[in-house]
Design a binder for these strands. Structure first.
Length: 469
DNA sequence: GACACGGTTCAACATTGATA
DNA sequence: TATCAATGTTGAACCGTGTC
């Protein structure tokens, strides 16, 4: 491209200039003192325009030399480069040199290509939105299960009350021991913690014939308790789970099963983190997730997830959304909490601190984020690890994010020292580190003022794509 | 169909600058 | 200084289209 920049190819512009003047190549050649065939070669970019000829063009036709290869060309070149980076041009083999040649040599055509590309992108996104709207209920079991939870605002009062009764029955004992005793007393099921090789990879196993509930030794204490609570919920509240799930209209059986599984997990959390006590503690501890975890013997993820369910009439907690994402940006669990417009597909924006949290294991990272509709949220992210019951065992590192509207953030311990008024009022510019635009404000703002940009790079960074509900 | 005209292709030549 | 490649330029032949 350096050679192309040194030489000036102005064929299409020269041709347009000549036609605007109503001249033939021969007439223009006579004006410029060159042969008609030379004019033709220049017009077809077979020959560059020499400095002497450029002066002649300026003198004879008032050709504006200063506009050649200036800011306009650079901007168009940048636009074209972005467009040609799209996978739809993959087979076309358009190089950056080609993009520059179009931008410098035929800006009208280049601008038309950019306009066409933008129109195509807009149409495709509209089409995707239509597809999603049409298919979500019929072809996506995960979306169906999410819709089920969303319809109940992720709160199931009947299950919560049952959980509180079980928790109250523990009579001061450690919860795991109390649940094990309840299993033996009420269901004649002995609880045993067994090594991984016996569990064959399972976390829990119910053997009615042997009168036994087996829990994997590879689980930490919080997960053992959770799995035992889950098994107990399935035994004692199975009918209620079925009734609640069956009251909802599912299009797929897979969606129904997923919803029942989610509800069973909810029931386990309701036992382990009983609503009233948990909400009281949450308010006392200013929603300090790690402190709540220590008080209830639960993991960071369990506490974070439970925070999204505090929607009891007359006893509501801070409305939270929840997200669990891996290093590749894949979302494995999420809940909107009615407040956060998650994407239907894809993962998190690369500007979100979920990725920073991944780089700094076990450290809580907070951030004020702004969506394109200018709504602002306070997010709390920390990495969590699952698996790894022993050295060399497979494990997965993920990031759990909970967040709330900025207006509620003053109730959180994590917002201490954060100027929330400024966070709500400070104007922010477009902030995006992927667009490579020289005027991008991303470099100029600290993380707390970054705007999440979702659609600009949807195709370039597919794992991070967002399309709003 | 002949002809004119505008535009295209190609071979050839002159000039220039880099290099051995 | 000779050589060579790149660049700038030209003219002839050719092609396509519109007009008479």
């Amino acid at each position: 491209m350096a050679d192309r920049k040194r030489k000036l190819f102005l064929g299409p512009q020269l041709r347009r200039l000549r036609r605007e003047a109503g001249q033939t190549q021969a007439e223009m050649a006579a004006d410029l003192g060159i042969s008609p065939s030379y004019v033709n070669l220049i017009e077809r970019n077979q020959r560059p325009v020499s400095a002497e000829l450029l002066v002649g063009l300026a003198r004879t036709y008032g050709f504006d030399i200063s506009r050649m290869g200036g800011a306009d060309t650079d901007a168009l070149f940048a636009e074209l480069s972005r467009a040609f980076a799209d996978p739809i041009f993959e087979d076309a083999g358009v190089s950056r040199e080609d993009a520059f040649e179009v931008a410098a040599g035929n800006p009208v055509l280049g601008a038309a290509v950019v306009s066409l590309y933008r129109a195509w992108r807009a149409a495709e996104e509209e089409l995707n939105a239509t597809r999603v709207a049409g298919n979500r209920a019929t072809e996506d079991p995960v979306e169906e299960a999410r819709t089920f939870l969303h319809a109940h605002r992720n709160h199931f009062e009947e299950i919560d009350q049952a959980g509180e009764r079980v928790f109250a029955d523990r009579a001061g004992a450690a919860l795991f021991d109390a649940l094990a005793a309840r299993c033996e007393r009420k269901h004649r099921l002995r609880v045993r913690v067994l090594p991984a090789e016996i569990m064959a990879g399972a976390w829990r196993r119910l053997n009615k014939h042997a009168g036994e509930i087996a829990i994997s030794e590879t689980l930490d204490h919080a997960s053992r308790t959770f799995n035992l609570a889950l098994q107990l919920a399935l035994i004692e509240e199975g009918a209620a789970l079925d009734r609640i799930v069956n009251a909802f209209k599912f299009e797929t059986d897979a969606g129904r099963r997923l919803a029942r599984s989610a509800l069973a997990n909810y029931a386990a959390a309701a036992i382990m983190l009983p609503y009233g006590a948990f909400l009281k503690a949450a308010e006392e501890l200013s929603y300090d997730i790690e402190a709540l975890g220590r008080r209830f013997g639960a993991s960071f993820e369990q506490i974070a997830h439970r925070l999204t369910t505090l929607r009891r009439d007359g006893a509501e907690g801070v409305p939270f959304f929840f997200l669990r994402v891996d290093a590749a940006g894949n979302v494995s669990k999420r809940f909107t909490g009615d407040i956060f417009p998650f994407a239907r597909y894809g993962g998190s924006c690369p500007l979100w601190t979920v990725h920073e949290a991944m780089r700094t294991p076990r450290r809580i990272v907070t951030q004020v984020i702004e969506l394109p509709d200018q709504s602002r949220y306070f997010s709390i992210a920390r990495s969590v690890m699952s698996g790894a019951g022993g050295y060399g065992a497979p494990h997965v590192e993920r990031v759990v994010v909970v967040g709330c509207a900025v207006k509620d953030a003053h109730r959180l311990v994590y917002a201490k020292g954060v100027d929330l008024e400024a966070a709500q009022a400070t104007p922010v510019g477009v902030a995006c580190r992927l667009c490579e635009r020289p005027d991008c404000a991303a470099r100029a703002y600290p993380p707390i003022r970054r705007r999440l940009v979702f659609d600009e790079h949807r195709r370039l960074a597919a794992p991070f794509s967002f399309a709003f509900d």
